[in-house]
């Protein structure tokens, strides 16, 4: 059996998720046994002209150019994977959507901003059909491996739809709310093993929200901890701003 041809691409991102592959250590060798990496700009200069069995795309779509690139990759790939928070949910790139595009363009590029046309940030699935999603900022290695196994077996992968609190309690952490810190765990999709809380940090919500987040209840909870509505909004939006566009794009490519 020939090994599936797999390629990595990046749109607007920090390439941190691709770096996570390098952080896999020996696991990476096991994975490389199973696949044939044909394109991976971060570690190799070769380019592949043919089609891909699996394309892992990191980063969000933030301008017309990246939209075209993504559509071209989609056209050449049997399986397309949204790789990491920016690709899966828009991630921190989504914060741009809270501002006027013209204004934010000036802020970043100054007088030249007209030469860098920008658009609202979108996660991949708001532009093309996505077959698998690897959440987290950066991608969480155990989940990355789990998703790869599912892809290679041709099985669907279901991202947990329960909150981080579940894993946090499995790990018997003292709740951040008991330590006086406001945590995004209650509305954020699990699957990370509550790694931030295990390491004495709060959950920032990098995995995106559960399918039916109880946002009002969550706001009430944070308000009890004397957090201003502005800060609550910022916490909610840091990784989740792109959710707003969800309803507008759903129908376009999902039939």
């Amino acid at each position: 059996m020939t090994k599936p041809k797999i390629a990595f691409f990046d749109l607007s991102c920090c390439e941190g998720c691709q770096l996570q592959l390098a952080n896999m250590g020996e696991l990476l060798l096991d994975v490389l046994e199973l696949v044939d990496v044909v394109e991976f700009r971060e570690v190799m200069s070769e380019k592949w002209e043919g089609n891909f069995d699996v394309a892992l795309v990191e980063g969000s779509v933030t301008d017309d150019h990246s939209e075209e690139r993504l559509k071209a990759i989609r056209g050449r790939s049997k399986v397309l994977v949204a790789f990491g928070a920016c690709a899966a949910t828009g991630g921190v790139n989504g914060m741009k959507n809270s501002f006027d595009l013209e204004e934010i363009g000036k802020y970043v590029y100054g007088a030249d901003h007209k030469s860098f046309p920008t658009r609202k940030t979108r996660p991949l699935h708001q532009v093309v059909k996505v077959d698998y999603t690897i959440n987290n900022c950066p991608a969480y290695i155990p989940e990355l491996v789990e998703v790869l196994k599912h892809i290679l077996k041709g099985l669907p992968y279901a991202v947990p739809d329960y909150p981080v609190c579940v894993e946090c309690k499995f790990n018997e952490n003292v709740c951040m709310y008991e330590r006086g810190a406001a945590c995004m765990g209650p509305v954020t999709r699990a699957g990370c093993g509550s790694q931030c809380i295990n390491n004495n940090n709060i959950c920032y919500g990098c995995r995106g929200m559960v399918s039916n987040p109880r946002e009002n209840a969550a706001r009430d909870i944070m308000a009890k901890y004397n957090i201003t509505p502005e800060l609550i909004a910022k916490k909610m939006e840091m990784y989740n701003k792109c959710r707003e566009e969800e309803k507008n794009v759903k129908k376009e490519h999902h039939h």
């Binding site: 696991l27 096991d30 994975v31 199973l34 491996v145 789990e146 196994k149 599912h150 290679l152 077996k153 329960y162 909150p163 609190c165 579940v166 309690k169 499995f170 709740c175 765990g185 209650p186 509305v187 039916n212 109880r214 009002n216 209840a217 969550a218 009430d220 909870i221």
Partner: peptide, 30 residues
């Protein structure tokens, strides 16, 4: 119910809750 955020803490910490889920996971040898 309005206040509840659905985090599941109350059942996970309960000494008498016993519901479970079962799932299969492949090893890397596939």
């Amino acid at each position: 119910g309005e206040k509840c955020v659905g985090c599941g803490n109350c059942t996970n910490v309960c000494p008498t809750c016993y519901c479970f889920d079962i799932a299969d996971t492949m090893n890397l040898d596939l």
